[in-house]
Nucleic acid binder design. Sequence first.
DNA 1: CACTAAAGCGGAGGCGCCTCCGTTTATTTA
DNA 2: TAAATAAACGGAGGCGCCTCCGCTTTAGTG
Lengths: 221, 221
Amino acid sequence: MGADPHGFKPHIARVEKKLTEQPSATDEKPEAPAPRPLRVDAQRNRDKLVEVAAQAFAADGVDASLEEIAKRAGVGIGTLYRHFPTREHLVEVVYRREVEGLCHAAEELARDHPADAALELWMQRFVDYIATKRGLATSLRLLLTTNSTLFSDTSGRVSGAMRGLVEAAAASGKIRADVDASDVMHALGGIYSAPNTPDWRERSGRLVKLLMDGLRFGARG
Amino acid sequence: MGADPHGFKPHIARVEKKLTEQPSATDEKPEAPAPRPLRVDAQRNRDKLVEVAAQAFAADGVDASLEEIAKRAGVGIGTLYRHFPTREHLVEVVYRREVEGLCHAAEELARDHPADAALELWMQRFVDYIATKRGLATSLRLLLTTNSTLFSDTSGRVSGAMRGLVEAAAASGKIRADVDASDVMHALGGIYSAPNTPDWRERSGRLVKLLMDGLRFGARG
DNA sequence: CACTAAAGCGGAGGCGCCTCCGTTTATTTA
DNA sequence: TAAATAAACGGAGGCGCCTCCGCTTTAGTG
């Protein structure tokens, strides 16, 4: 995006296909007839593709070239399309992975740090997450309105993770006890809706610090 | 869409550009410094493009080939892109034109027919409009969330036109007087949200007739 | 009418999308 | 271990997107 003077930059939404059928990353429903667990090479390629795609989308936005992604993952374009029949499939998987990572980070941070530090670090991580989300903005907006499962899924998980951290911090006395997790989430809303200036990241960082000061103020600990 | 086995069918939303700057079909703001009224040949080409595009979108959906549209309009692809720098611009103009037509039809029908017939005919026309809107579904959804002016503009105009017809019919005694235009609009909602079956059109036609029977029931006239 | 600047035109060219199918490879079976 | 087979691979090919810029047409001006 920028180093691509002749690039292919369509500007339209064209999504008609297959959005009903979910990729379903963590599908362990007891009813599933175990659809055969992907050959090891296939799984390896798939993972590599997702990883490379995540980088590419972060760097170039959703318009990143799929052919380039395939190449960088060391597979043919055909392989990419077999795993992800549409661009959305790939975007969705990358996004879900991002959410997964964010929730996982919450557990990890909670284990390795004092409750208030864990919360603060997590919020900084949340800023990165939002940054990605903004990169994918248009696609995501469409995906989230088309595919309501995705929306409820992810927003539920994220706010759940945050709730856990806030409550733990409150319980440990590291932050004041009279706040609700949803209030904190609401405060973070400012990050999301803030204008897309170049200094957005620093601003957001400061917002998080400020918020933490507020949370620590008058804490028991 | 179908007669295009090797066609270019991306499936992603890529809209970043120029959606702020409105095409503004009917821009007559007193502040505008009159941006020079388009050379006659240019205007002719532009009109032709919009007309052809309207047909193409109706026939093939928003994925209709822009090169094909340019060709059928008898201009080069470059001309199309000069007038409509992105596909959305074209979609938006076509859509606004559709809305315009619908509102204009309301006046015309009101002039040429008894009030109740005018309303019924207009509602049948409304079915066509919705059909178009469905054809453009994904693009429109994105456009309407991105560009809130477009939304308020058009929905306001359409419901205004309908209100006029309903009130005229009620005043003339051709339909019962105890209904509100917004109720009728609400009833028509069924058309929009109905599943996209092949017999959708007939169903909608019957819905309109049914609705008219309900409206005529117990009328003074 | 001749001239000229500005406006408009249009298509070649370069790139990305995505399908199709012959080839390669992992896994199962003998 | 070898043969058989299903799964996966990958890239050529065909098509649409969109920019760029030399050529054409229009609308003024003297």
